[in-house]
């Protein structure tokens, strides 16, 4: 019994981390029709920046580190979009290849700067105590991560559905040419959305730090999970990313715990069924 409850909680925590990663990917894809393969690398560089901020400056706590790291990664994402991706606006395949190249550069740069040893991200001291719920001890931090993911989901939902900026983004997703024609600055939106997606990924890297820590290869571990989440949930759909993240969180956690050798295969089964049934994913609207 305890096994199932603890693993369920771990699944929720992983689902939360996956949502933070996949929502940005999905957002960027939805508006820009760009599969950002550097997303895992941005997550990893965020984790490294956060881990080093925490190590060097005593006055910075985890939340501040996540915020700073998110801002830095957002700025780097903005530069990438402005300087490189923009030139390839008419060449979607070229854009994907460039983000792949950039992910190699970032991953190797992280290895060069921070070495091959994992850097732990300490859990804030007041969240180290276990949380007792119906007699079972849960690591409190994991509950907080799920909370942050849900808060982010609500925040993104409100941003997209209730603000002027969100209305412009939705218009751009639905019909980009028409959005331009009615005077929406689609080009500026691209930069804004790319910064936002990259920033969430960077902050997510720090927030996932106490669970995953920062290590070389983190990007290659996380990117396929994010890809499966968005393929499953439907590319460009926020609800799909949310549902998909928790499905994958559960399957991956239980798969690793029960059949560690075949966790990756189990992960891929739901993807086969969903794609065979509906190629757009669970909540996707468009067939690409």
């Amino acid at each position: 019994m305890q096994f199932w409850i603890i693993q369920s909680l771990n699944s929720l925590a992983l689902g939360g981390v996956l949502f933070l990663l996949a929502s940005g990917f999905s957002l960027i894809f939805g508006l820009m029709r760009l599969a950002n393969l550097a997303h895992g690398a941005l997550f990893m560089v965020g984790a490294y920046i956060g881990a080093n901020l925490l190590r060097k400056y005593a006055f910075i706590d985890l939340w501040m580190a996540a915020l700073l790291s998110g801002l830095m990664v957002a700025a780097a994402g903005g530069l990438l979009e402005r300087l490189v991706l923009r030139r390839l606006a008419t060449n979607p395949l070229g854009q994907v290849l460039v983000t792949l190249g950039v992910s190699f550069i970032i991953a190797d740069a992280c290895l060069m700067v921070w070495g091959g040893d994992p850097i732990p991200v300490p859990t804030p001291s007041y969240l180290r105590r276990p949380l007792f719920v119906v007699g079972f001890a849960f690591p409190a931090y994991r509950v907080v991560v799920v909370g942050i993911a849900i808060a982010t989901a609500i925040g993104l939902y409100l941003l997209l559905e209730r603000t002027r900026l969100g209305a412009m983004i939705r218009a751009g997703v639905d019909d980009m040419d028409m959005a331009r024609a009615v005077g929406i600055p689609v080009s500026k939106l691209f930069t804004a959305v790319f910064c936002l997606g990259a920033g969430i990924a960077g902050a997510a890297g720090v927030l996932a730090g106490p669970i995953l820590s920062a290590y070389p290869g983190l990007d290659a571990d996380m990117l396929p999970l994010a890809l499966i989440v968005v393929i499953l949930g439907g590319i460009g759909s926020l609800v799909g990313a949310f549902v998909g993240s928790f499905i994958i969180g559960f399957i991956y956690t239980f798969g690793t715990a029960l059949v560690p050798d075949l966790a990756y295969v189990i992960l891929f089964l739901p993807m086969i069924f969903i794609i065979a049934y509906s190629p757009q994913g669970l909540f996707g609207r468009m067939a690409t």
């Binding site: 599969a35 890809l227 590319i235 993807m271 086969i272 794609i275």
Partner: peptide, 20 residues
């Protein structure tokens, strides 16, 4: 599996399968 999609969807599915 992969040819349920084309374009970027195809690229992502082949990538995910190879990662498996």
């Amino acid at each position: 599996i992969a040819l349920r999609a084309t374009g970027l969807g195809f690229l992502m599915i082949t990538l995910a399968l190879s990662q498996v």
